[in-house]
């Protein structure tokens, strides 16, 4: 890679933000703003990023950020986009940035409404799989078997992770995609693609959280890569709710899920039986995804 290919001038994240060392969310937003900027407005619901973006008078991003209450991200995004349109700023990209809590649980109804109205903005969910900012409480994005503050040892998260992509696909929105921080090129191309489409667009980014997941801060990228290679978090996109496409397909040979789980302390108490259950579940989801990709109508 050459230095001019790094597009250093289009970075929009400042140093000195308040993310923990090795934060996946900080990286995700860095790639996001770099890909979509500079004409960008961000609506931010309560999440880690509310803290990362800095306390006034400091700000961590070169674009405006509007903080909004937890359940209202979907609606505030709609309002901001319509307001900008009314003021003649049609070309400004509006991004609603929410954590998994603000997407999967608390923000779901507002987001669902906006998706149903096909509001013209990009909803980005950076998913660190629990309410990390408030102390690692279980969310509906927490995977099966994980230990959290609300499910301490010997308890564990009993239910499955909510399949948000299926929900969004069912809304029939023009574009939905998954991405993760270990594959910045893939994320950039998806964001650029989303930016060119009009209507409600949804990007689901897996962003590892070292303190919440119980990992070394240096393992962020490694884990993000493992999540993809194990099939735990496949990278794909959905167009108009019907056309499913893999964007990073490493073939049928998947890394065993054990490798991904054993690297994280939140899965430390997981016994073999539960691990096999989760592996089975991941394999099943993978097969379903492959079937959807195979049976997708071509353009």
């Amino acid at each position: 890679m050459r230095i001019d290919e790094l597009k250093i001038d289009s970075e929009m994240l400042y140093s000195g933000h308040n993310a923990c060392p090795g934060c996946g969310a900080a990286l995700a937003v860095r790639y996001l703003t770099k890909a979509l900027g500079p004409n960008l407005a961000i609506v931010l619901t309560a999440s880690c990023w509310s803290i990362i973006s800095g306390m006034p008078p400091l700000t961590a991003l070169k674009c405006p950020i509007l903080h909004c209450p937890f359940p209202s991200a979907g609606s505030v995004g709609s309002g901001v986009k319509r307001g900008l349109n009314a003021a003649g700023h049609d070309d400004t990209t509006v991004v609603v940035l929410a954590g998994d809590g603000g997407t999967f649980d608390i923000g779901l109804q507002a987001m669902s409404g906006a998706a149903q109205r096909n509001e013209d903005y990009i909803f980005v969910c950076y998913d660190n799989e629990a309410y990390m900012n408030t102390g690692m409480q279980t969310s509906s994005a927490t995977p099966f078997g994980a230990r959290t503050a609300t499910a301490p040892y010997p308890l564990f998260k009993a239910g499955q992770k909510k399949d948000i992509m299926q929900i969004m696909a069912a809304h029939g929105i023009p574009y939905a995609a998954t991405a993760t921080v270990a594959f910045p090129d893939d994320m950039e191309s998806k964001l650029k693609k989303a930016q060119a489409i009009k209507g409600f667009r949804f990007i689901h980014i897996l962003s590892p959280c070292p303190p919440g997941w119980g990992t070394e801060s240096s393992d962020t990228i490694h884990l993000s890569r493992l999540a993809v290679s194990t099939g735990f978090f496949p990278l794909y996109e959905i167009e108009n709710g019907v056309t499913w496409k893999m964007t990073h397909y490493q073939g049928e040979k998947k890394t065993p899920l054990k490798e991904y789980l054993s690297a994280q302390r939140r899965f430390k108490q997981m016994d073999r039986q539960r691990m096999e259950m989760l592996q089975h579940e991941v394999d099943h989801e993978w097969d379903c995804l492959m079937e959807k990709v195979a049976t997708s109508p071509s353009e």
Binding site: H17, P21, C23, A26, R30, S217, S218, T220, I221
Partner: peptide, 29 residues
Amino acid sequence: FCPDMAIDVINGRFELNLDYCKGCGICVK
């Protein structure tokens, strides 16, 4: 991969900016 933008590009070389580096170790790994 630096989450903290703590790598500066000076004359075509990459230099660590220890003013902002939080020491996460991603770059090393």
